[in-house]
Protein backbone atom coordinates (compact mmCIF):
# COMPACT_ATOMS: atom_id res chain seq x y z
CA UNK A 1 0.00 0.00 0.00
CA UNK A 2 1.36 3.40 -0.95
CA UNK A 3 1.93 5.87 1.85
CA UNK A 4 0.88 9.25 0.53
CA UNK A 5 3.04 11.33 2.84
CA UNK A 6 6.13 9.27 2.18
CA UNK A 7 5.59 9.36 -1.55
CA UNK A 8 4.97 13.08 -1.44
CA UNK A 9 8.45 13.60 -0.04
CA UNK A 10 9.91 12.21 -3.26
CA UNK A 11 8.45 15.15 -5.17
CA UNK A 12 10.61 18.25 -5.17
CA UNK A 13 9.67 21.59 -6.67
CA UNK A 14 10.84 22.11 -10.24
CA UNK A 15 13.10 25.01 -11.06
CA UNK A 16 11.41 28.03 -12.63
CA UNK A 17 12.90 30.13 -15.40
CA UNK A 18 13.65 32.95 -12.93
CA UNK A 19 15.95 30.54 -11.07
CA UNK A 20 17.76 29.38 -14.21
CA UNK A 21 20.70 31.74 -13.79
CA UNK A 22 21.44 30.61 -10.25
CA UNK A 23 20.94 27.00 -11.24
CA UNK A 24 23.53 27.26 -14.01
CA UNK A 25 26.06 29.14 -11.92
CA UNK A 26 25.76 26.72 -9.01
CA UNK A 27 26.28 23.64 -11.15
CA UNK A 28 29.34 21.64 -10.25
CA UNK A 29 31.01 21.01 -13.55
CA UNK A 30 33.81 18.88 -12.30
CA UNK A 31 33.92 15.61 -14.14
CA UNK A 32 35.96 12.45 -13.76
CA UNK A 33 38.68 13.87 -15.93
CA UNK A 34 39.08 16.77 -13.53
CA UNK A 35 39.07 14.33 -10.62
CA UNK A 36 41.67 12.17 -12.29
CA UNK A 37 43.81 15.21 -13.11
CA UNK A 38 43.46 16.33 -9.54
CA UNK A 39 44.37 12.86 -8.27
CA UNK A 40 47.37 12.71 -10.53
CA UNK A 41 48.45 16.12 -9.43
CA UNK A 42 48.13 15.12 -5.80
CA UNK A 43 50.03 11.93 -6.50
CA UNK A 44 52.85 13.85 -8.21
CA UNK A 45 53.05 16.32 -5.37
CA UNK A 46 53.16 13.43 -2.94
CA UNK A 47 55.95 11.79 -4.93
CA UNK A 48 57.97 15.00 -5.06
CA UNK A 49 57.57 15.46 -1.30
CA UNK A 50 58.67 11.87 -0.61
CA UNK A 51 61.77 12.30 -2.80
CA UNK A 52 62.73 15.53 -1.04
CA UNK A 53 62.21 13.89 2.34
CA UNK A 54 64.32 10.85 1.38
CA UNK A 55 67.18 13.08 0.13
CA UNK A 56 67.50 14.60 3.61
Amino acid sequence: MINFEEELKRFKPSAEVEDAEDSIYNQDLDDMADVVVSLLKDARQQTDYTRRFNRR
Binding site: S14, D19, A20, M32
Partner: peptide, 24 residues
Protein backbone atom coordinates in the same frame (compact mmCIF):
# COMPACT_ATOMS: atom_id res chain seq x y z
CA UNK B 1 29.98 13.35 -14.97
CA UNK B 2 32.76 11.40 -16.62
CA UNK B 3 33.30 14.00 -19.30
CA UNK B 4 31.73 17.40 -18.86
CA UNK B 5 32.78 18.30 -22.39
CA UNK B 6 30.69 15.51 -23.93
CA UNK B 7 28.60 17.97 -25.93
CA UNK B 8 26.37 15.36 -27.52
CA UNK B 9 25.49 13.88 -24.14
CA UNK B 10 24.77 17.30 -22.66
CA UNK B 11 22.61 18.36 -25.61
CA UNK B 12 20.68 15.11 -25.47
CA UNK B 13 20.24 15.46 -21.74
CA UNK B 14 18.78 18.91 -22.29
CA UNK B 15 16.41 17.49 -24.90
CA UNK B 16 15.24 14.76 -22.57
CA UNK B 17 14.69 17.23 -19.74
CA UNK B 18 12.68 19.46 -22.10
CA UNK B 19 10.51 16.56 -23.18
CA UNK B 20 9.81 15.71 -19.56
CA UNK B 21 8.73 19.28 -18.84
CA UNK B 22 11.83 20.36 -16.91
CA UNK B 23 12.48 23.53 -18.86
CA UNK B 24 15.08 25.11 -16.61
Amino acid sequence: KFNKANIDARNLLGLVYFEMGEVV
